[in-house]
Design a protein around this nucleic acid. Structure first.
Length: 419
RNA sequence: GUGGGUGUAGCUCAGUUGGUUAGAGCGCCAGAUUGUGGCUCUGGAGGCCGUCGGUUCGACCCCGAUCAUCCACCCCA
């Protein structure tokens, strides 16, 4: 146990961290271009924030949160998602007094106590964006668009954008009654969780995977077909906006997000290339949440995008993420005098922005060459007694094997010119 | 929380019906004459065979438990 990472967590090793740097860099670039500014919030929050915003009946709150008491007897929970902390910070700092709409993003670790499987970890990472202050459906489309830009820049293909509307409190209430009326006679044949859902949140029954439930629900009425005029118009606006942006989408009446705060737009971006947990990005509108958390009545929309899943899709689609150059030049040195000169050269080269390394192991020249080769050094500068005596250095190009001898003081200029 | 698969070297895996010092490939380190990498060859280091218990004269192998891991369900990123 001592030398084993906790269940459901993963180390990101030096040999693969460049992939994360690449994706994170891309995210920052895209957000900057699209007007989303980063905000950083704590890794943990007061438990009640999630209970209130995500909803007491959801799986996340009921069984997946990492909750503990701190030494001051406060109930603390590790973030299971990013929207609620974001909303909390906006309310706390009265950011609603600033120019609207407000657009932000985050890259965070999230924690959910679940049974790990492919594409599911107990600690995972999310990139998310949020837009507050407007109900205009074109911002819903923009949010989806931003995710698609990221996928596009990475070269990821074969994704499905699935959209739905889960209505507003007004039409959802009417629909729930309709749904209960439809389900009442079938209730004895449904699974136990669905019987529970019937009372608390009948909408979720649509999503049930149990065969016996599915069989009962062949002609179940969907929320999408019973929207109020306002929600219906909003959904039409979303579809039009997506078309203008050139984003293909599928209307999926069965999308019911697992967090209670969603209203109107709900969407998922799904891949079939990473196993059972195919949802790479999920999000929607949450027009009532900010007020629910004690802020002014403000609409909002956003998404969460799983970075592990994103990297998995890229990997499975054979996408190669560019590796940074490991080493510009390796200084091979022989003998004590040359070793001291190598250290001086190291500082000179690095001060000039050249990625340089030298021998620290007193190895033979042959071994040093092998090392330079394994490290993918582009050049090797060789200094030994002869070079020191003549004030010169041999520089070898490792890709074509060509070697030149130059004046020592010109090494920096020579390399800068070549690199 | 439930179900199934798998735990042997840093990595990927062999290991005959239970029988002496547990193997391979890759990787790592060193060498193949004196100061030059990639290819090849040689040598070396590195394993309480996941852990605990049981069966047996004897267990990497059989049985049980436990832990971990992978996949799936529920649900989600």
């Amino acid at each position: 146990m001592l030398t084993q990472a906790p269940k459901g967590t993963k180390d990101i090793l030096p040999s693969e961290v460049y992939k994360w740097h690449y994706v994170e860099g891309l995210i920052r670039e895209i957000c900057d271009l699209n007007g989303y500014k980063e905000m950083r919030t704590p890794v943990f929050e007061h438990t009640e924030l999630f209970q209130r915003s995500i909803g007491e009946t959801t799986d996340v709150v009921q069984k997946e949160m990492y909750t503990f008491k701190d030494k001051g007897d406060r109930s603390i929970t590790l973030k299971p998602e990013g929207t609620a902390p974001f909303v909390r910070a906006f309310i706390e700092h009265s950011l609603f007094n600033e120019v609207q709409p407000i657009k932000g993003y985050y890259i965070i670790p999230c924690f959910r106590y679940e049974q790990p499987q492919s594409g599911r970890l107990r600690e995972f990472h999310q990139f998310g964006i949020e837009a507050f202050g407007t109900k205009d459906p074109s911002i819903d489309a923009e949010v989806i668009w931003v995710a698609m830009i990221l996928f596009g820049k990475l070269g990821i293909k074969n994704l499905e954008v699935r959209i739905n509307s889960v209505g507003c409190p007004k039409c959802r209430k009417e629909y729930n009654e309709l749904l209960r009326g439809y389900l009442a006679p079938k209730l004895p044949d449904l699974c136990n969780t669905c019987k529970d859902r019937y009372i608390k949140n009948p909408l979720r029954i649509i999503d049930c995977k149990e065969e016996k439930c599915k069989a009962q629900l062949t002609d179940i009425p969907f929320m999408l077909d019973h929207l109020c005029p306002d929600c219906s118009e909003h959904f039409e606006g979303l579809k039009q906006s997506l078309t203008i942006l050139g984003i293909d989408y599928i209307i999926d009446r069965k999308i019911v997000r697992g967090l209670d705060y969603y209203t109107k737009t709900a969407f998922e971006i799904v891949s079939n290339d990473i196993g059972a947990q195919g949802t790479v990005c999920g999000g929607g509108r949450y027009d009532g949440m900010i007020e629910e958390c004690g802020g002014p009545d403000t609409p909002g929309i956003g998404f969460g995008l799983g970075l592990e899943r994103l990297l998995m899709v890229a990997e499975n689609q054979g996408i190669v993420i560019p590796k940074p150059v490991a080493m510009d030049v390796y200084i091979a040195n022989l003998g004590e005098v040359a070793a001291k000169e190598a250290l001086r050269l190291l500082s000179l080269l690095r001060n000039n922005g050249i990625k340089a390394e030298k021998d620290y192991m007193s190895r033979s020249l042959k071994a040093q060459m092998k090392y330079a080769n394994k490290m993918n050094a582009r050049y090797v500068a060789v200094i030994g007694e002869d070079e020191i005596a003549n004030n010169r250095v041999k520089v070898k190009n490792m890709s074509d094997g060509m070697e030149e001898e130059i004046v020592l003081s010109e090494l920096t200029a020579y390399l800068k010119n070549k690199l």
